[in-house]
Amino acid sequence: MGSDRLLPVRPDGGGSAPSEPPPGYLGPDEDRILVLTLKDVQKGLAAQGYVADDRLAMALHLAQQLGRPLLLEGPAGVGKTDVAKAVAAWRDTRLIRLQCYEGLDASHAIYEWNYQRQLLAIRASEAQGGVAEAQLFSDEFLLKRPLLEAISETKPPVLLIDEIDRADEEFEAYLLEILSDFQITIPELGTVQARVRPVVILTANGTRDLSDALRRRCLYSFLDYPSRETEQAILRARLPEIEGILARQIIGVVQALRQEDLEKKPGIAEMLDWAAALSGLGVNDLAKSREDVQATLVCLLKTAADYNAAPPEVMDRLIGKVA
């Protein structure tokens, strides 16, 4: 955490200073040392056990090549957050996560001064004749929150802004500067410009309309529940020990359950939980272990109404269809 991590442009140098990039900043192209192709993206994610369909892979590819944020929308539990984790693991870089919530403000998302340390420094230096103001407002006393942290990294990190629609609209507006210019203005220090562009991934559930200004700055992709083939590939990648017939039955039942009228449809994470539970119980064939199936449904159905909507008869029907 040395001061070389931040390259502030001091606003005291007249009007032209803030617009000049700081020394050492080679422009947003610097992080594109190796030019990736679409195939690389798919292969890289597959190596992390993340199965991305063509559209998502293309969106991720462009997000990295063009240096623009990617907005992912879709129902809960389709792997929006996991995309970011997989990308970070694949690129072998840091994942910086900002979980949004109502009331999230700049001091929690961007930076805050470490008041206690500043006070301590003042008290400690009183004997030596005081401390200079410039020293107090230096990198040493700056608490970096996720957004500033992402911007001051030297290796492009993955910045995940999760569930942006939970944050207030004011915060969304605050994000605009960061997402379009990758810079943050700290009044006491000046403007901090990103040395390398982070890969920014935003997720939203559609509980609130996002502003057009934000959408305009982002690439967009919609993640839906996966197709049967994709979901089978996901199960194979995550839980390779599950055998062919059981895997087919699990996917069949989950896909059929999503067609039912449920309050909370089971997502991919639920499917994987269920599969792990079944394999942990040593189930080989759903049709032959009906009690286990009924007992493990808690992994799939998360509300009482849904649980009641899938009595043994319904499950018999679903399993009968896929068996």
């Binding site: 969106a59 462009l62 967009y220």
Partner: peptide, 18 residues
């Protein structure tokens, strides 16, 4: 196909457009 997917990612802004 690639051109279609690339333009889709860049030009769409919400689920409806997508």
């Amino acid at each position: 196909n690639q051109a279609r997917q690339a333009m889709c990612a860049v030009l769409t802004g919400d689920a409806e457009d997508w």
